[in-house]
């Protein structure tokens, strides 16, 4: 095959554009996260013993598990900290289950995975206190989150057995980490999309609705019009029918 003279130039040009673009795309999610060498080494041992069979001995991914290079400490802290990892069984979606490691061990594994390549870091405490603007957080939640997680975070169904979990009882740290890393089928909400302040406001909103009773009384699981309609049909109409029968019956 004869090479055209400008082909080499084009390849170099494309390579430069792509690597530059890739760098630009990566920079806005990268935060510095460095553990002490001892912590990283401790994390590497735990990783080899508990994670490497699926994720590869260097976190490069293997059959059954994706690569962990560049997923960041936040991803490890979320996945292991909510018990989703180490994964158990196969199915449409891995579920939260009792956590199998201490926070110290989780932090060590997070530090090890963060040392492989830069990625989203564990969020600062200042964004997790829930002292932001709940109204703004509520608006952002309804635009970005409510279609899957329900307007008050009660969760909802996705396709083919997958589901968006209920958000009640999830710690602010895990909520933040889920937004920034996009676990399983959840999309990523990086800091350009929802700034750390926006995420703080969303966490404030979730905390507010968790701490305050529903102003409308019975929530019926907050799962929407089907549950509410069923309740009204069975109890409301049932009551009316019972009264009608009693009105029409003769006294004995």
């Amino acid at each position: 095959m004869r090479r055209r003279p400008w082909a080499a130039g084009l390849v170099v040009f494309l390579g430069l554009v792509l690597s530059g673009g890739g760098y630009a795309a990566a920079t806005n999610v990268v935060q510095a996260e460095t553990g002490s060498p001892a912590q990283v080494e401790e994390g590497r041992k735990l990783f080899l013993a508990n994670c490497a069979s699926c994720h590869g001995t260097n976190g490069e991914g293997a059959i059954g598990g994706p690569s962990l290079i560049g997923v960041g400490a936040a991803s490890v802290d979320f996945q292991v900290g909510t018990g989703r990892m180490p994964g158990q069984g196969s199915g449409p979606q891995l579920r939260a289950k009792p956590v199998q490691f201490t926070q110290e061990q989780i932090s060590a594994m997070a530090a090890y995975v963060a040392s492989l390549a830069p990625g989203p870091a564990i969020p600062d405490e200042e964004y997790l206190r829930g002292d932001g603007d709940a109204t703004h957080g509520g608006e952002l939640f309804r635009i970005n989150c409510a279609m899957c997680h329900n307007a008050v975070g009660a969760g909802g169904a996705l396709t083919e057995g997958k589901f968006a979990p209920a958000l009640g009882g999830v710690t602010p740290k895990h909520t933040y980490e889920a937004m920034v890393t996009g676990p399983q089928n959840m999309p990523v909400f990086n800091d350009a999309n929802l700034t750390p302040e926006d995420k703080k406001d969303i966490i404030t909103y979730l905390k507010y609705i968790e701490d305050n009773d529903s102003v409308a009384g019975f929530e019926l699981g907050s799962i929407g019009p089907v549950a509410e309609g069923l309740f009204t049909w069975i109890f409301g109409l049932g009551f009316i029918i019972a009264i009608t029968v009693w009105l029409g019956a003769k006294s004995n």
């Binding site: 795309a25 806005n28 635009i143 999309p187 990523v188 990086n190 350009a192 999309n193």
Partner: peptide, 10 residues
């Protein structure tokens, strides 16, 4: 460059 892989923007 803000739209990283896996991101969803409304």
């Amino acid at each position: 460059s803000d739209v990283t892989i896996g991101s969803v923007f409304h």
